[in-house]
Write a protein that binds this DNA or RNA. Structure first.
Lengths: 146, 146
DNA sequence: CCTTGACTTAAAGCTAACTTGAAGTTGTAC
DNA sequence: GTACAACTTCAAGTTAGCTTTAAGTCAAGG
């Protein structure tokens, strides 16, 4: 498969494939002239990378796990750690969501008069909620995958 | 209050306060010489900004709501929309978390042999899960708030 | 009055994950 | 054998949300 074929089958742009190769996340099996030649398992690797990204791993974190040859070696403890991180994030997002929903129907004249909203404010101010700023990346991910 | 006092009370660095002012998220009530003078309500605004960020609003999205003077005017429909977004994110993260947790204890020789893991892979590959790449920002948020 | 440390601005730098552009190479169809 | 679309590399640009740096101003204490 050439890079265009991989791009088409995986939905990952060629520029990204080159970037991933440079980062050591994927590798081509050789060259035909200048052009990279990939074999089919790169598709599985790309799925794995997408999964890892969705789970919150950075590319740099994944590079070692996806290491050179053979089946990727994924540390189970790391998976559990990520799962725990996700649990925290989920809990925070749930509190956030409930707060937003209340604020939306709250009858207080302004949000600032609503005790629940103010409590939520306090949470955010205290840094109890750390789940900030995911939107941009979410939007990017959606755009990329759309 | 001068900028140092606001920084101390809110935990937000002075550089960030200047940046927020430049973006139109907060405003000083005047100057004493060159130096900005803030009044106390800036603290509430900062809490609101922290809350908004935690809920997934970008600074640019918040600027209009926090507009000039008077109590910030927050559109309730927008809050509901964000809550719905959060619901989607939460659902995806839950699937992710469950998948990771299973993968961690799965007895299949390699993760690639595990049907559940492969199903998760499929999800990521299909772009069903869009919740990618929140970690970096989460870490930043934590570092900032620590 | 003078020092000094906290403030000021404007511009540049940072991170992650890519994308874009310029300039060059080449497999392939004609 | 030649045109050309598709590849190649390398460097620079993009986004969001800040931080850092350089150079300058100035209120307050001694």
């Amino acid at each position: 498969m050439d890079i265009a074929e991989v791009a088409k089958r995986s939905g990952v742009p060629a520029s990204t494939l080159r970037y991933y190769e440079e980062k050591g996340l994927i590798s081509s099996v050789g060259r035909r002239g200048l052009r990279r030649v990939f074999n089919a398992n790169v598709l599985q690797r790309l799925a794995l990378i997408a999964l890892g990204r969705a789970a919150g791993f950075t590319l740099d974190e994944m590079a070692p796990m996806l290491g050179q040859k053979g089946p990727p070696d994924i540390d189970r403890a790391l998976l559990l750690a990520k799962a725990d991180e996700l649990d925290n994030t989920i809990t925070q997002l749930q509190a956030m969501r409930d707060g937003l929903r209340h604020a939306a129907v709250c009858t207080a004249a302004s949000h600032m008069q609503c005790p629940k909203f103010r409590r939520l404010l306090g949470l955010a101010a205290d840094g109890v909620i750390h789940a900030a700023g995911k939107r941009q990346r979410l939007k990017r991910a959606k755009a990329t995958l759309a």
